[in-house]
Each structure stands twice: as structure tokens, then as C-alpha cells.
């Protein structure tokens, strides 16, 4: 006899004991996965409020782009190129943090220098500051979004596992246990009848 998630089943006592142990382990695994699922749901719910700030950050970016356009208009391309020359490239570092066993990327600013030159036109400085402000707010949001994405992926994965265990694997194991128990009971009954018949024959022989 074969069960999809158990494999070939041997109706022996040893196999039954191993199967019972395995089922017990699976049940405690389901409990642990449920706890992880609940924790992941809590974590993602905590992030939800923060993720709603995206529209505000987008608004700030829009403002920054508007200011950039104005800077380009008032200062001209040569001045903008000078500002670009004075701006150090943005340096970031990506770290990986573990949240309930889920690996989450986290970006940190290593160096973030604005073009700090009073010789630049104020409108250019204003555009740079607007961008810096927007980027400063964008970064935690990016981190939160990446975290949420990973948590959501992990949550889906965990729920799939819990469902598979609860709906397929554990029932399969329990069915296999039941099958072995029935088979063993049948064997025992057969054995009992055989012994009983043997005793009857023996008794008849002694009397006869």
C-alpha cells in the first residue's frame, strides 16, 4: 500500500511506531509554523501604516523635480553641471537582517554629501536640498517595502506549508497509521483464530 506523502507503507509495528513519531513531529511543526505565520502577519501589519506614506514621499519627489526644473531654468545647464561636479556620488551599503528567519535587505547611507558651495545659485541648492529630503524619506520606505515584500513572500510560503501539512501530509500520515493499525489488528485476529483452531485440534486429538 502507498500514500502520496508517506510513500510505501509497511504494515509492521516498527513502521507504525516510526510513523506515529513522524506524525507527532509534523503536528508540532505545524504549530511552530502557525506561530511564525501569526508573527509575520503582525510584522506586516505594523509595516502597513508606514507604507501608506508612499504618496507623501512621491509628492516630495514631485516637488523636488519641479524645483529641479526651475533650477535648470533660472541657473542654466552650465551651473547645473558645476553643481553635479561638486556633488559626491551617493554611497550606500546593503546589509541583510533576519526577521523571524526571513532575510530582509536593508540599505544604509554611507556617504551623502550635498553640493555645499555658496557659489552655486540658491535655486540649485534648493533643488539639491529638496532631493536630499525626498531621498532621506524614500530610503526608509524602500527598506520597509523590501521588508514587506520578503515578509509577504515568506508568509505565503508558510501558509502553503501549513495548508499542505494540515490538509494533505498529516491526514495522509494519519490514514497510513489507521491502515497499519487495521492491518495489524486483522493480522492479530487471524493469528488468534489460528491459535484457537490449533488448540481445538489439539484438544480433539487428546480426547480421541
Amino acid at each position: 500500500m502507498s500514500f502520496r506523502s508517506v510513500g510505501r507503507v509497511l504494515p509492521t509495528k516498527g513502521f507504525l511506531i516510526r510513523l506515529r513519531e513522524r506524525t507527532q513531529l509534523l503536528k508540532s511543526g505545524v504549530e511552530a509554523l502557525k506561530m511564525k505565520r501569526d508573527q509575520l502577519v503582525r510584522e506586516s501589519q505594523e509595516l502597513l501604516e508606514f507604507l501608506k506614506t508612499r504618496s507623501e514621499v512621491e509628492k516630495k519627489l514631485e516637488e523636488a523635480y519641479r524645483m529641479l526644473k526651475l533650477a535648470y531654468t533660472a541657473a542654466g545647464p552650465t551651473e547645473m553641471r558645476k553643481a553635479a561636479l561638486l556633488t559626491m556620488p551617493l554611497l550606500t551599503e546593503v546589509k541583510v537582517r533576519s526577521v523571524i528567519g526571513v532575510e530582509v535587505p536593508e540599505i544604509e547611507f554611507k556617504e551623502f554629501h550635498l553640493a555645499a558651495s555658496p557659489s552655486l545659485e540658491a535655486v540649485v541648492i534648493a533643488a539639491a536640498r529638496k532631493f536630499a529630503e525626498a531621498v532621506n524619506e524614500l530610503l526608509p520606505l524602500i527598506n520597509a517595502e523590501a521588508k514587506f515584500e520578503r515578509i509577504a513572500e515568506s508568509l505565503a510560503d508558510t501558509m502553503r506549508k501549513v495548508n499542505a501539512l494540515e490538509k494533505i501530509i498529516i491526514p495522509d500520515h494519519e490514514a497510513a497509521i489507521k491502515y497499519i493499525e487495521e492491518a495489524l489488528e486483522e493480522d492479530m485476529l487471524e493469528e488468534f483464530l489460528r491459535v484457537k483452531k490449533y488448540r481445538d485440534i489439539k484438544r480433539r486429538e487428546e480426547l480421541g
Binding site: 524645483m67 526651475l70 533660472a74 545659485e121 540658491a122 535655486v123 541648492i125 534648493a126 529638496k130
Partner: peptide, 8 residues
Amino acid sequence: VGEPWVIE
């Protein structure tokens, strides 16, 4: 605007 961009 939040910034003194008109200085010049």
C-alpha cells in the same frame, strides 16, 4: 516653497 530659492 520651503526653500529660499529666490536669493539670486
